[in-house]
Amino acid sequence: MNQRFEHAQFAHCESGVVSTLLSSYGLKISEPMAFGITSSLSFVYMPIVKISNMPLIAYRDLPKNIINNISKVLGIEMVKKQYKDPIQANKDLTQFVQNSQLVGLQTSVFYLPYFPKDMRFHFNAHNLLVVGKEENNYTISDPVFETLMSCDENELTKARFARGIFAPKGFLYYPKHIPKDINLSKGIKKAIIKNAKALLTPFPYAGVKGMRKLATKISKLKVDNNERHIKNFLTHIVRMQEEIGTGGGGFRFLYAAFLQEAKAYNLDKSILQEASELFIKSGNALREFALLCVESSKKLERFDSQTIANKLTEASFYEQEAALLLKKL
């Protein structure tokens, strides 16, 4: 089955891995399609959940959403395994590789030796593909990197059994059966509407409202004597958006690309075009927002909370408009 495998670099690890995995098992699916059809665009701001003492901020749905939903949406049978015993997990993985069967893994970035040192933080939901093994080293197709990587089996096992929030517990997955006649157009329409509704949710910490909640929080920040916290808070937002969220409003551009692709499936093209442009606008606003955050944390005396908050609110209005449009599909 592996003959059709081709390593490619992607904007987002999970959608990238799913795209490569399904493509090499015979179902050609692009990264934007994998991302869009699982309704993965989102915004979450959870002040109660802390990561390194900072609130949880995410620009897309929770990790594993794509893997879990793709089987539901497309009727694909996926094998998903978690392990208690690291030795067994490694044995199984070697077995898959020897049968030249491509599998996806969830890992922690911190324990992967091929990552640059500066990028290694305790982020437990990084996805990659294992494509081969030479002696004790696995060959890895990691969507973040341009080329194939190599990783010692002990280190990889450590990364698979990292603990903490989103602990992978050796999570391994691959498609078992892909139906021959997959009708994308029906799934796409449903997925777009579902995503639009999710963005418009009345729950105040998610979607459009979540963005405004965060904007309000930023507008209330005061510099007096906690400069360090403000600097860390602002750069934390940027990190969640850029480092983990791929290039500014990367997920917004990814979703815009999906909407363009969706035009080929018998849906109202003008709505898709307009919404796609709105998401690009939102992505642009988010990039400017990130630049403002960085500028302010470099020169805190010039920190203007209102301007920054307004930028985020601006992005939220574009997304609201786009979601309202898409709901009508």
């Binding site: 904007a11 850029e242 290039g247 815009a256 690309a257 363009q260 990130a290």
Partner: peptide
């Protein structure tokens, strides 16, 4: 990340962001 090429189609392009660099370094 995804960008738009000359013919108006989306494609993947390399990028490097100094904002991202600063945020990572701060952390």
């Amino acid at each position: 990340m995804y960008g738009i090429n000359e013919s108006g189609k989306f494609e993947r392009v390399n990028y490097a962001s100094s904002a991202e660099e600063f945020a990572t370094q701060t952390a």
